[in-house]
Design a protein around this nucleic acid. Structure first.
Lengths: 209, 209
DNA sequence: CCTGACGGTGAGCAAGCGCTTAGGACGCCG
DNA sequence: CGGCGTCCTAAGCGCTTGCTCACCGTCAGG
């Protein structure tokens, strides 16, 4: 068996979406949702961007909402994995928090079109799908909160309000998806570095890079 | 002439919208837009919430987009005024910045339903209206940047990247409109105080309150 | 060659959309 | 009382929406 068969799912942007036509439709939907928002996007527009007829969409997805759900699910999974990888890495609490913020922000900047859909079209989802996604977000929250708590316990941080600071840190990172590339001229790496520094200041880390 | 005639425009929430029916429609629109988003809201829904027939909307507003524009315009004006009042107040740069963040955040929390429409439905506006609103946002940006610059010049702050930090501070404040009251249990005053402290940390203010 | 599954299309349905228009209820002035 | 302007409604127009359905080309297996 050729090695390309199983590995191709990981490196190209939406490789985990398996029928090729389904992937093209999903990518088209991400673009359209990010540009105009979920409700302002028509199924005809999505199918058109993917080079297909309007009816083709319903061969691969049951409803327009299912498309949004798939995008939201995969996007949140990836963002959470990025966060956790840095959080579980080596180094002091400050180093891990800076790393986590840096890569989380970089992800939101790099994939700002996906991130915008994932973070800002949440209540277009149906009841069940929305609660599923909210559970994923709580895991992101817990990941950041744990890092901050560890830093406080180790004496590295000075944080009077841990839940509030956690909320603010995540809010700051997530909002990158809204303004990125609308303002222009900053690379994802630069924003990541800036935000890592700002967050270290917010938690009162003693030494700064 | 009775004194109530001119003063009533200032204290009640949308007092500047003068025909009474027009105000009721606008308030209904704010609620609906905040709950479901602009595109997912129907003119019938807005009129229904205001206790009127669908056609009544078009006596007071030419289009649904004009309603959004009026909301956006008034909301941005008010938020900018709140920011500037604190920025032009007395005290050191640190005190004024903290004050500005505190009141700006409090406004976004208090009027989170209005703020959500104002901050997150921007690209539902038409071309001309959108550029008009963006000009107002640039003034908010300039107000914050000036305060930070003054603090740096006075030796109160330590900020390596002033434009980037300005962006982050505003992003942090604005995003309050997204999560407030979805999370619950924090009062606008508490969030304002927390955020003022966090922002002082971000700019490296030497003394903290 | 036939067969059947797969993946796609063209046409269109019922419902809902933003918005318009003809007309009615009401109060004010003569 | 009539005439008029203001504010609102009932009805509906033209169009678009999410989605369906009857049908078709392609290709592997026998």
């Amino acid at each position: 068996m050729s090695t390309a068969e199983k590995t191709e799912g990981e490196d190209l942007p939406w490789g985990e979406v398996t029928p090729d036509a389904a992937r093209r439709l999903l990518i088209a939907a991400v673009e359209a949702f990010a540009e105009r928002g979920y409700h302002a996007t028509t199924t005809r527009d999505i199918a058109g961007r993917a080079g297909m007829s309007p009816a083709a969409l319903y061969i691969h997805y049951k409803t327009k909402e299912e498309l949004l759900h798939r995008i939201s699910r995969i996007g949140h999974d990836k963002a959470l994995r990025v966060l956790r990888t840095a959080a579980n890495g080596p180094g002091s609490a400050a180093e891990r928090l800076a790393d986590a913020v840096r890569s989380f922000v970089r992800w939101h900047a790099d994939h700002h079109t996906t991130a915008r859909v994932v973070q800002y079209e949440l209540d277009a989802l149906g009841e069940e799908h929305r609660t599923e996604i909210i559970a994923l977000r709580r895991q992101s929250d817990a990941t950041v909160r744990d890092m901050i708590n560890e830093g406080v316990r180790a004496g590295e941080f000075d944080v009077p309000d841990v839940p509030g600071t956690t909320l603010a840190v995540l809010s700051l990172c997530i909002d990158v998806a809204r303004w990125f590339n609308v303002a222009g001229q900053r690379t994802p790496d630069e924003v990541g570095a800036l935000y890592a520094d700002l967050v270290l200041r917010m938690v009162g880390a003693r030494q700064r890079g």
